[in-house]
């Protein structure tokens, strides 16, 4: 399938992602922030699709937009709105954060500028139909060990959360 109007959709999705990201940190209402974050995540999923990575896009929607954001909302909904409105929106460390963000941006820009020399000009897109299969081969073949370690780490995190939340098991 050949993509239609590629630049248009690229800029649309990127714009949505950035706008959503800005809204996340500027909204006073935490639920509105979460909704903006969902927009960002969906826009990023769209970008994955444009990069011929449909599997990652699907997982992004299921796991982040469908699963994690619901849990976020779950917690946020129970927070008292009046209290959050009264609280300061940014803490005193914000210049540090801004500096770090600028540094990251500079890094990206320099890689983008100099990267043309480092990376091959254009990678031929892998066949879309076998994308899922390739991911499977990579995850359960080449990177089996790393994958299992990651899942063990997550298991530890789950156990920790259970222990913190429940005194008596």
């Amino acid at each position: 399938m050949t993509p239609v109007a590629t630049p248009f959709f690229f800029y649309l999705l990127s714009g949505l992602a950035i706008a959503g990201g800005l809204l996340v940190i500027t909204r006073r209402n935490a639920v509105h922030s979460a909704l903006a974050l969902i927009v960002t995540l969906l826009a990023v999923a769209g970008l994955y699709l444009m990069l011929y990575a449909p599997f990652v896009a699907g997982v992004q929607i299921i796991v982040y937009a469908g699963g994690i954001m619901v849990l976020f909302l779950f917690v946020i909904m129970l927070v008292s709105l009046e209290r959050t409105i009264k609280e300061r929106q940014f803490n005193r460390m914000w210049p540090v954060g801004l500096f770090a963000a600028c540094a990251l941006l500079a890094l990206f820009m320099s890689v983008f500028a100099k990267g043309r020399a480092l990376f091959p000009d254009r990678v031929p897109p892998p066949p879309e139909a076998s994308n899922t299969q390739q991911i499977g081969v990579m995850l359960y073949g080449n990177y089996m060990f790393a994958f299992e370690i990651a899942s063990l780490l997550l298991l530890v995190a789950i156990l920790g959360a259970v222990i913190m939340a429940k005194k008596r098991i």
Binding site: V31, L35, V70
Partner: peptide, 25 residues
């Protein structure tokens, strides 16, 4: 016909819960 068809269906239908949560809140 998407090659991630079933994943797409599960993913998008899982977004329906957002509507429910937002309505409730």
């Amino acid at each position: 016909d998407m090659n991630i068809g079933i994943l797409f269906m599960l993913g998008v239908s899982s977004l329906a819960v957002l509507g429910v949560v937002m309505a409730g809140w």
